[in-house]
Design a protein around this nucleic acid. Structure first.
Lengths: 195, 195
DNA sequence: CCCAGTTTCCTAGGTCCTCTAGGAAGCAAA
DNA sequence: TTTGCTTCCTAGAGGACCTAGGAAACTGGG
Protein backbone atom coordinates (compact mmCIF):
# COMPACT_ATOMS: atom_id res chain seq x y z
CA UNK A 1 0.00 0.00 0.00
CA UNK A 2 1.46 3.33 -1.03
CA UNK A 3 1.71 5.80 1.82
CA UNK A 4 -0.52 8.80 1.88
CA UNK A 5 2.18 11.11 3.17
CA UNK A 6 0.28 12.29 6.18
CA UNK A 7 1.71 14.78 8.64
CA UNK A 8 0.09 16.73 11.45
CA UNK A 9 0.47 19.85 9.28
CA UNK A 10 -1.26 18.41 6.22
CA UNK A 11 -4.05 17.02 8.35
CA UNK A 12 -4.56 20.32 10.13
CA UNK A 13 -4.55 22.24 6.87
CA UNK A 14 -7.17 19.93 5.41
CA UNK A 15 -9.15 20.22 8.61
CA UNK A 16 -9.45 24.00 8.52
CA UNK A 17 -10.42 23.89 4.86
CA UNK A 18 -13.07 21.35 5.69
CA UNK A 19 -14.21 23.50 8.61
CA UNK A 20 -14.84 26.43 6.28
CA UNK A 21 -17.00 24.17 4.16
CA UNK A 22 -19.04 22.23 6.67
CA UNK A 23 -18.55 24.15 9.90
CA UNK A 24 -16.03 23.70 12.66
CA UNK A 25 -18.23 21.37 14.70
CA UNK A 26 -18.73 19.04 11.80
CA UNK A 27 -15.06 18.45 11.14
CA UNK A 28 -14.60 14.81 11.88
CA UNK A 29 -11.59 12.54 11.85
CA UNK A 30 -13.59 10.12 9.76
CA UNK A 31 -14.23 12.75 7.13
CA UNK A 32 -10.57 13.70 7.06
CA UNK A 33 -9.57 10.06 6.72
CA UNK A 34 -11.90 9.73 3.74
CA UNK A 35 -10.38 12.86 2.25
CA UNK A 36 -6.91 11.33 2.42
CA UNK A 37 -8.12 7.89 1.29
CA UNK A 38 -7.06 6.37 4.56
CA UNK A 39 -8.64 4.60 7.51
CA UNK A 40 -9.71 6.53 10.61
CA UNK A 41 -7.16 4.82 12.80
CA UNK A 42 -4.28 5.96 10.60
CA UNK A 43 -4.77 9.58 11.61
CA UNK A 44 -4.06 8.76 15.21
CA UNK A 45 -0.38 8.29 14.39
CA UNK A 46 -0.18 12.02 13.63
CA UNK A 47 -2.81 13.57 15.87
CA UNK A 48 -3.52 12.46 19.41
CA UNK A 49 -7.27 12.81 19.23
CA UNK A 50 -10.02 15.16 18.13
CA UNK A 51 -9.24 17.73 20.78
CA UNK A 52 -5.60 17.78 19.76
CA UNK A 53 -6.61 18.36 16.15
CA UNK A 54 -8.91 21.20 17.16
CA UNK A 55 -6.17 22.85 19.15
CA UNK A 56 -3.88 22.67 16.14
CA UNK A 57 -6.63 24.16 14.01
CA UNK A 58 -7.00 26.99 16.50
CA UNK A 59 -3.31 27.86 16.34
CA UNK A 60 -3.19 27.65 12.56
CA UNK A 61 -6.30 29.78 12.09
CA UNK A 62 -5.25 32.22 14.78
CA UNK A 63 -1.96 32.78 12.99
CA UNK A 64 -3.71 33.41 9.69
CA UNK A 65 -6.09 35.85 11.32
CA UNK A 66 -3.40 37.91 12.96
CA UNK A 67 -1.37 37.91 9.74
CA UNK A 68 -4.27 39.46 7.91
CA UNK A 69 -4.84 41.99 10.65
CA UNK A 70 -1.17 42.90 10.79
CA UNK A 71 -1.09 43.48 7.06
CA UNK A 72 -4.18 45.66 7.23
CA UNK A 73 -2.99 47.75 10.15
CA UNK A 74 0.58 48.24 8.94
CA UNK A 75 1.42 51.90 8.48
CA UNK A 76 -1.84 53.16 9.91
CA UNK A 77 -2.62 54.82 13.20
CA UNK A 78 -5.57 56.07 15.23
CA UNK A 79 -8.99 55.69 13.69
CA UNK A 80 -7.51 54.46 10.42
CA UNK A 81 -5.80 51.62 12.18
CA UNK A 82 -8.92 50.79 14.15
CA UNK A 83 -11.02 50.63 11.01
CA UNK A 84 -8.42 48.51 9.23
CA UNK A 85 -8.19 46.14 12.16
CA UNK A 86 -11.94 45.82 12.36
CA UNK A 87 -12.32 45.33 8.63
CA UNK A 88 -9.70 42.61 8.44
CA UNK A 89 -11.15 40.87 11.45
CA UNK A 90 -14.70 40.74 10.15
CA UNK A 91 -13.62 39.84 6.63
CA UNK A 92 -11.77 36.84 7.98
CA UNK A 93 -14.71 35.78 10.12
CA UNK A 94 -17.09 35.95 7.16
CA UNK A 95 -14.83 34.48 4.51
CA UNK A 96 -13.43 31.69 6.64
CA UNK A 97 -16.14 30.83 9.16
CA UNK A 98 -14.68 27.47 10.08
CA UNK A 99 -11.23 28.88 10.69
CA UNK A 100 -12.75 31.73 12.65
CA UNK A 101 -14.73 29.36 14.85
CA UNK A 102 -11.52 27.47 15.49
CA UNK A 103 -9.91 30.59 16.91
CA UNK A 104 -12.64 30.83 19.51
CA UNK A 105 -12.40 27.48 21.22
CA UNK A 106 -11.21 27.08 24.77
CA UNK A 107 -7.56 26.09 24.82
CA UNK A 108 -5.56 24.60 27.62
CA UNK A 109 -3.84 27.47 29.39
CA UNK A 110 -0.51 25.66 29.43
CA UNK A 111 -0.48 25.52 25.62
CA UNK A 112 -1.44 29.14 25.26
CA UNK A 113 1.54 30.46 27.19
CA UNK A 114 4.11 30.35 24.42
CA UNK A 115 1.99 30.90 21.34
CA UNK A 116 3.61 33.37 18.94
CA UNK A 117 0.25 34.16 17.35
CA UNK A 118 -1.21 35.23 20.66
CA UNK A 119 1.79 37.35 21.52
CA UNK A 120 1.64 38.97 18.11
CA UNK A 121 -2.05 39.65 18.52
CA UNK A 122 -1.47 41.31 21.86
CA UNK A 123 1.37 43.42 20.47
CA UNK A 124 -0.62 44.65 17.52
CA UNK A 125 -3.75 45.37 19.50
CA UNK A 126 -1.99 47.25 22.26
CA UNK A 127 0.10 49.04 19.67
CA UNK A 128 -2.97 50.19 17.85
CA UNK A 129 -4.39 51.65 21.04
CA UNK A 130 -1.26 53.60 21.81
CA UNK A 131 -2.65 56.49 19.77
CA UNK A 132 -5.46 56.92 22.27
CA UNK A 133 -3.05 57.60 25.13
CA UNK A 134 -4.49 55.03 27.52
CA UNK A 135 -2.53 53.48 30.32
CA UNK A 136 -3.00 50.35 32.36
CA UNK A 137 -5.42 49.17 33.52
CA UNK A 138 -7.51 51.18 31.06
CA UNK A 139 -5.52 49.74 28.21
CA UNK A 140 -6.49 46.19 29.07
CA UNK A 141 -10.10 47.22 29.56
CA UNK A 142 -10.12 48.85 26.14
CA UNK A 143 -8.61 45.78 24.49
CA UNK A 144 -11.28 43.64 26.06
CA UNK A 145 -13.98 45.96 24.84
CA UNK A 146 -12.70 45.84 21.29
CA UNK A 147 -12.26 42.08 21.20
CA UNK A 148 -15.71 41.62 22.71
CA UNK A 149 -17.45 43.83 20.24
CA UNK A 150 -15.65 42.48 17.22
CA UNK A 151 -16.18 38.89 18.21
CA UNK A 152 -19.74 39.41 19.37
CA UNK A 153 -20.72 41.11 16.16
CA UNK A 154 -19.21 38.43 13.96
CA UNK A 155 -20.72 35.66 16.05
CA UNK A 156 -24.19 37.17 15.95
CA UNK A 157 -23.92 37.89 12.26
CA UNK A 158 -22.76 34.34 11.59
CA UNK A 159 -25.65 32.75 13.49
CA UNK A 160 -28.16 34.97 11.75
CA UNK A 161 -28.76 36.96 14.90
CA UNK A 162 -29.42 40.21 13.07
CA UNK A 163 -32.93 40.03 11.77
CA UNK A 164 -33.66 43.65 10.92
CA UNK A 165 -33.28 44.64 7.30
CA UNK A 166 -30.72 47.32 8.13
CA UNK A 167 -27.50 46.77 6.18
CA UNK A 168 -25.05 44.78 8.28
CA UNK A 169 -21.98 46.49 6.83
CA UNK A 170 -23.32 49.93 7.72
CA UNK A 171 -24.04 48.86 11.27
CA UNK A 172 -20.51 47.52 11.52
CA UNK A 173 -19.03 50.80 10.33
CA UNK A 174 -21.15 52.61 12.87
CA UNK A 175 -20.01 50.31 15.62
CA UNK A 176 -16.40 51.01 14.72
CA UNK A 177 -17.11 54.74 14.77
CA UNK A 178 -18.75 54.38 18.15
CA UNK A 179 -15.80 52.45 19.52
CA UNK A 180 -13.46 55.14 18.28
CA UNK A 181 -15.49 57.72 20.15
CA UNK A 182 -15.53 55.59 23.27
CA UNK A 183 -11.75 55.29 23.11
CA UNK A 184 -11.32 59.03 22.60
CA UNK A 185 -13.54 59.83 25.58
CA UNK A 186 -12.44 56.89 27.67
CA UNK A 187 -13.74 56.92 31.26
CA UNK A 188 -10.37 56.78 32.94
CA UNK A 189 -9.68 55.01 36.18
CA UNK A 190 -10.76 57.05 39.20
CA UNK A 191 -12.68 59.54 37.10
CA UNK A 192 -16.42 60.09 37.56
CA UNK A 193 -18.43 60.08 34.41
CA UNK A 194 -22.16 60.70 34.47
CA UNK A 195 -22.59 63.00 31.54
CA UNK B 1 -43.64 -0.84 33.04
CA UNK B 2 -44.68 2.34 34.84
CA UNK B 3 -44.64 5.38 32.62
CA UNK B 4 -42.06 8.05 33.18
CA UNK B 5 -44.47 10.92 32.53
CA UNK B 6 -42.41 12.53 29.81
CA UNK B 7 -43.49 15.68 28.04
CA UNK B 8 -41.62 18.01 25.73
CA UNK B 9 -41.60 20.56 28.55
CA UNK B 10 -40.10 18.26 31.16
CA UNK B 11 -37.50 17.03 28.71
CA UNK B 12 -36.54 20.56 27.74
CA UNK B 13 -36.33 21.64 31.37
CA UNK B 14 -34.06 18.75 32.18
CA UNK B 15 -32.03 19.51 29.09
CA UNK B 16 -31.24 23.10 30.04
CA UNK B 17 -30.32 22.02 33.55
CA UNK B 18 -28.02 19.41 32.11
CA UNK B 19 -26.59 22.00 29.75
CA UNK B 20 -25.60 24.21 32.66
CA UNK B 21 -23.77 21.25 34.17
CA UNK B 22 -21.99 19.69 31.24
CA UNK B 23 -22.17 22.34 28.54
CA UNK B 24 -24.72 22.87 25.80
CA UNK B 25 -22.83 20.82 23.22
CA UNK B 26 -22.66 17.84 25.51
CA UNK B 27 -26.38 17.61 26.10
CA UNK B 28 -27.30 14.35 24.52
CA UNK B 29 -30.57 12.55 24.08
CA UNK B 30 -28.94 9.46 25.50
CA UNK B 31 -27.96 11.29 28.67
CA UNK B 32 -31.49 12.68 29.03
CA UNK B 33 -32.93 9.20 28.53
CA UNK B 34 -30.70 7.90 31.29
CA UNK B 35 -31.82 10.76 33.51
CA UNK B 36 -35.45 9.77 33.07
CA UNK B 37 -34.72 6.06 33.32
CA UNK B 38 -35.92 5.48 29.81
CA UNK B 39 -34.53 4.28 26.50
CA UNK B 40 -33.22 6.72 23.90
CA UNK B 41 -35.97 5.92 21.45
CA UNK B 42 -38.67 6.88 23.93
CA UNK B 43 -37.72 10.53 23.78
CA UNK B 44 -38.52 10.66 20.10
CA UNK B 45 -42.23 10.52 20.89
CA UNK B 46 -41.93 13.95 22.49
CA UNK B 47 -39.13 15.62 20.62
CA UNK B 48 -38.53 15.28 16.90
CA UNK B 49 -34.77 15.08 17.08
CA UNK B 50 -31.75 16.73 18.64
CA UNK B 51 -32.18 19.93 16.67
CA UNK B 52 -35.78 20.22 17.76
CA UNK B 53 -34.71 19.81 21.38
CA UNK B 54 -32.07 22.48 21.00
CA UNK B 55 -34.55 24.88 19.51
CA UNK B 56 -36.87 24.30 22.46
CA UNK B 57 -33.95 24.89 24.81
CA UNK B 58 -33.18 28.15 23.03
CA UNK B 59 -36.72 29.45 23.47
CA UNK B 60 -36.91 28.39 27.10
CA UNK B 61 -33.55 29.91 27.98
CA UNK B 62 -34.23 33.03 25.94
CA UNK B 63 -37.41 33.59 27.88
CA UNK B 64 -35.64 33.22 31.19
CA UNK B 65 -32.92 35.62 30.11
CA UNK B 66 -35.27 38.35 29.03
CA UNK B 67 -37.33 37.90 32.20
CA UNK B 68 -34.26 38.59 34.28
CA UNK B 69 -33.32 41.57 32.18
CA UNK B 70 -36.82 42.99 32.30
CA UNK B 71 -36.88 42.72 36.09
CA UNK B 72 -33.50 44.43 36.35
CA UNK B 73 -34.34 47.26 33.99
CA UNK B 74 -37.85 47.96 35.34
CA UNK B 75 -38.15 51.49 36.64
CA UNK B 76 -34.73 52.59 35.49
CA UNK B 77 -33.67 54.83 32.64
CA UNK B 78 -30.55 56.08 30.92
CA UNK B 79 -27.23 54.88 32.23
CA UNK B 80 -28.92 53.16 35.18
CA UNK B 81 -30.99 51.08 32.84
CA UNK B 82 -27.98 50.27 30.68
CA UNK B 83 -25.96 49.11 33.67
CA UNK B 84 -28.87 47.03 34.97
CA UNK B 85 -29.40 45.44 31.58
CA UNK B 86 -25.72 44.65 31.25
CA UNK B 87 -25.46 43.29 34.76
CA UNK B 88 -28.45 41.00 34.39
CA UNK B 89 -27.21 39.80 31.02
CA UNK B 90 -23.75 38.88 32.19
CA UNK B 91 -24.98 37.36 35.43
CA UNK B 92 -27.22 35.05 33.47
CA UNK B 93 -24.42 34.09 31.10
CA UNK B 94 -22.08 33.25 33.96
CA UNK B 95 -24.55 31.54 36.25
CA UNK B 96 -26.28 29.54 33.55
CA UNK B 97 -23.69 28.92 30.87
CA UNK B 98 -25.58 26.09 29.23
CA UNK B 99 -28.79 28.06 29.03
CA UNK B 100 -26.88 31.05 27.74
CA UNK B 101 -25.22 29.00 25.02
CA UNK B 102 -28.66 27.76 24.02
CA UNK B 103 -29.83 31.31 23.39
CA UNK B 104 -27.05 31.77 20.84
CA UNK B 105 -27.74 28.96 18.42
CA UNK B 106 -28.93 29.54 14.90
CA UNK B 107 -32.69 29.11 14.71
CA UNK B 108 -34.84 28.59 11.70
CA UNK B 109 -36.12 31.99 10.65
CA UNK B 110 -39.68 30.72 10.27
CA UNK B 111 -39.77 29.73 13.95
CA UNK B 112 -38.30 33.01 15.10
CA UNK B 113 -41.07 35.13 13.60
CA UNK B 114 -43.65 34.72 16.32
CA UNK B 115 -41.48 34.27 19.39
CA UNK B 116 -42.78 36.32 22.32
CA UNK B 117 -39.36 36.25 23.98
CA UNK B 118 -37.73 37.84 20.98
CA UNK B 119 -40.38 40.49 20.66
CA UNK B 120 -40.05 41.28 24.34
CA UNK B 121 -36.30 41.48 24.02
CA UNK B 122 -36.58 43.92 21.17
CA UNK B 123 -39.12 46.06 23.06
CA UNK B 124 -37.00 46.28 26.16
CA UNK B 125 -33.79 46.98 24.32
CA UNK B 126 -35.22 49.66 22.11
CA UNK B 127 -37.08 51.11 25.08
CA UNK B 128 -33.89 51.37 27.06
CA UNK B 129 -32.23 53.28 24.24
CA UNK B 130 -35.04 55.79 23.99
CA UNK B 131 -33.30 57.91 26.61
CA UNK B 132 -30.42 58.50 24.21
CA UNK B 133 -32.63 60.15 21.63
CA UNK B 134 -31.55 58.00 18.72
CA UNK B 135 -33.66 57.45 15.64
CA UNK B 136 -33.61 54.82 12.96
CA UNK B 137 -31.36 53.60 11.51
CA UNK B 138 -29.04 54.68 14.31
CA UNK B 139 -31.26 52.92 16.81
CA UNK B 140 -30.80 49.56 15.15
CA UNK B 141 -27.07 50.15 14.84
CA UNK B 142 -26.87 50.94 18.54
CA UNK B 143 -28.82 47.84 19.48
CA UNK B 144 -26.46 45.75 17.40
CA UNK B 145 -23.46 47.33 19.08
CA UNK B 146 -24.83 46.59 22.55
CA UNK B 147 -25.78 43.02 21.76
CA UNK B 148 -22.42 42.40 20.14
CA UNK B 149 -20.40 43.73 23.02
CA UNK B 150 -22.44 42.00 25.68
CA UNK B 151 -22.40 38.70 23.90
CA UNK B 152 -18.79 38.94 22.83
CA UNK B 153 -17.62 39.74 26.32
CA UNK B 154 -19.54 36.86 27.88
CA UNK B 155 -18.42 34.46 25.20
CA UNK B 156 -14.77 35.38 25.56
CA UNK B 157 -14.98 35.28 29.33
CA UNK B 158 -16.65 31.88 29.21
CA UNK B 159 -13.99 30.36 26.94
CA UNK B 160 -11.21 31.73 29.10
CA UNK B 161 -10.30 34.28 26.47
CA UNK B 162 -9.21 36.92 28.98
CA UNK B 163 -5.79 35.94 30.16
CA UNK B 164 -4.56 39.15 31.79
CA UNK B 165 -4.86 39.33 35.57
CA UNK B 166 -7.01 42.47 35.41
CA UNK B 167 -10.30 41.93 37.22
CA UNK B 168 -12.96 40.84 34.78
CA UNK B 169 -15.79 42.59 36.60
CA UNK B 170 -13.96 45.93 36.52
CA UNK B 171 -13.33 45.61 32.80
CA UNK B 172 -17.00 44.87 32.31
CA UNK B 173 -18.03 47.97 34.24
CA UNK B 174 -15.63 49.99 32.15
CA UNK B 175 -17.05 48.55 28.96
CA UNK B 176 -20.54 49.55 30.05
CA UNK B 177 -19.31 53.05 30.84
CA UNK B 178 -17.67 53.23 27.45
CA UNK B 179 -20.85 52.10 25.70
CA UNK B 180 -22.81 54.74 27.58
CA UNK B 181 -20.41 57.38 26.31
CA UNK B 182 -20.61 56.01 22.79
CA UNK B 183 -24.39 56.23 22.93
CA UNK B 184 -24.29 59.80 24.28
CA UNK B 185 -21.94 60.91 21.51
CA UNK B 186 -23.43 58.71 18.84
CA UNK B 187 -22.08 59.36 15.33
CA UNK B 188 -25.40 60.09 13.73
CA UNK B 189 -26.30 59.21 10.18
CA UNK B 190 -24.90 61.70 7.70
CA UNK B 191 -22.70 63.38 10.25
CA UNK B 192 -18.92 63.49 9.87
CA UNK B 193 -16.97 62.49 12.89
CA UNK B 194 -13.20 62.54 12.90
CA UNK B 195 -12.46 63.93 16.29
C1' DC C 1 -66.50 -2.92 34.59
C1' DC C 2 -64.89 -3.96 30.07
C1' DC C 3 -63.33 -2.88 25.70
C1' DA C 4 -61.48 0.01 21.73
C1' DG C 5 -58.46 3.45 20.65
C1' DT C 6 -54.65 6.24 21.66
C1' DT C 7 -50.45 7.31 23.64
C1' DT C 8 -46.18 5.92 25.69
C1' DC C 9 -42.47 3.27 25.96
C1' DC C 10 -39.94 -0.81 24.36
C1' DT C 11 -36.83 -3.95 21.37
C1' DA C 12 -34.10 -4.29 17.42
C1' DG C 13 -31.16 -2.51 14.42
C1' DG C 14 -28.78 0.71 11.02
C1' DT C 15 -25.36 4.45 10.56
C1' DC C 16 -21.74 7.29 11.98
C1' DC C 17 -18.23 8.73 14.97
C1' DT C 18 -14.10 8.28 18.45
C1' DC C 19 -10.39 5.75 19.92
C1' DT C 20 -7.28 1.47 21.26
C1' DA C 21 -4.54 -2.72 20.39
C1' DG C 22 -1.80 -5.21 17.71
C1' DG C 23 0.04 -6.53 13.13
C1' DA C 24 1.98 -5.91 8.45
C1' DA C 25 3.94 -3.22 4.91
C1' DG C 26 6.98 0.52 3.42
C1' DC C 27 11.25 2.98 4.04
C1' DA C 28 16.01 4.36 5.42
C1' DA C 29 20.39 3.67 7.08
C1' DA C 30 24.00 0.50 8.51
C1' DT D 1 20.37 -7.22 3.00
C1' DT D 2 19.17 -6.82 7.25
C1' DT D 3 17.47 -4.10 11.09
C1' DG D 4 14.48 -1.12 13.05
C1' DC D 5 11.34 2.73 12.80
C1' DT D 6 7.34 4.72 10.98
C1' DT D 7 3.07 4.46 8.60
C1' DC D 8 -0.88 2.46 7.70
C1' DC D 9 -3.86 -1.53 8.27
C1' DT D 10 -7.58 -4.81 10.41
C1' DA D 11 -10.47 -5.65 14.21
C1' DG D 12 -13.36 -4.20 17.49
C1' DA D 13 -15.40 -1.73 21.65
C1' DG D 14 -18.42 1.93 22.94
C1' DG D 15 -21.41 5.81 22.44
C1' DA D 16 -24.62 8.80 19.99
C1' DC D 17 -28.56 9.64 16.61
C1' DC D 18 -32.52 7.98 14.65
C1' DT D 19 -36.29 4.70 12.44
C1' DA D 20 -39.61 0.91 12.30
C1' DG D 21 -42.66 -1.74 14.39
C1' DG D 22 -44.67 -3.95 18.61
C1' DA D 23 -46.40 -4.23 23.37
C1' DA D 24 -47.91 -2.24 27.49
C1' DA D 25 -50.25 1.42 29.89
C1' DC D 26 -53.68 4.60 30.09
C1' DT D 27 -58.42 6.87 28.49
C1' DG D 28 -63.19 7.39 27.72
C1' DG D 29 -67.66 5.34 26.08
C1' DG D 30 -70.79 1.85 26.58
Amino acid sequence: MARAGLTPERITAAAVDLADEVGFENVTLSALARHFGVKDASLYSHVRNLQDLRTRMAFLAGGELIDRIAAAVAGRAGKDALAAFAGAYREFALERPGRYAATQIRIDQSLVADSPALRRTAEITYGMLRAYGLEEPDLTDAVRLLRSTFHGYCALEATGGFGAPRDVQRSWDKAVDALHIALRHWPREGQQNDD
